[in-house]
Amino acid sequence: MPKIKLAENTIQIIKDICAEFDNNEGELINVLHKVQDKLGYLPAEVQEVIAKGLNTSVAKVYGVVTFYSYFTMIPRGEFPISICMGTACYVRGAEQVLSEFKRQLKVDVGESTPDGMFSINCLRCVGACGLAPVVNVGDKVYGRVAPTQVKEIIAEYRKGCDSDNVKSA
């Protein structure tokens, strides 16, 4: 991964968050949540600042970041696509929907498109099992998605227009 240089004010944001939690090592997970909320992801350089702020080793921070699936070291796309792979969605065809997204966007799970518009992720049960299979794009939920609808969903964002209604087959 190429080295990135953090802006001074980004470093300050991270330091402030650490201070908010009294620079307490035991609050590491809460700090990571807050930093990821602000910055979108947690690259190695950010982890170094957090380690310093909480007076712990970078190895420990890295260990925790990589342990939990909620934390990511790769920037997400502008429109993150999450496909629910809970059992209810799986038995109603989530896998076919996922492979269609991968095929259309030519990226794998956990990757972003080169233009930074989309990224694909799997998640485990959003709890809308009545709508299975479910796909989230950002905060918007699409229910009962069929592989044939995938193209439309992507096109909706490519065009930059966003209809107000939830799509349901």
Binding site: V126, G127, A128, C129, G130, L131, V134, V141, G143, D164, N165, V166, S168
Partner: peptide, 12 residues
């Protein structure tokens, strides 16, 4: 106001 119904249209 559960997640499932909110994912449909319950806010609207």
């Amino acid at each position: 106001g559960g997640t499932g119904c909110k994912a449909s249209e319950s806010n609207e």
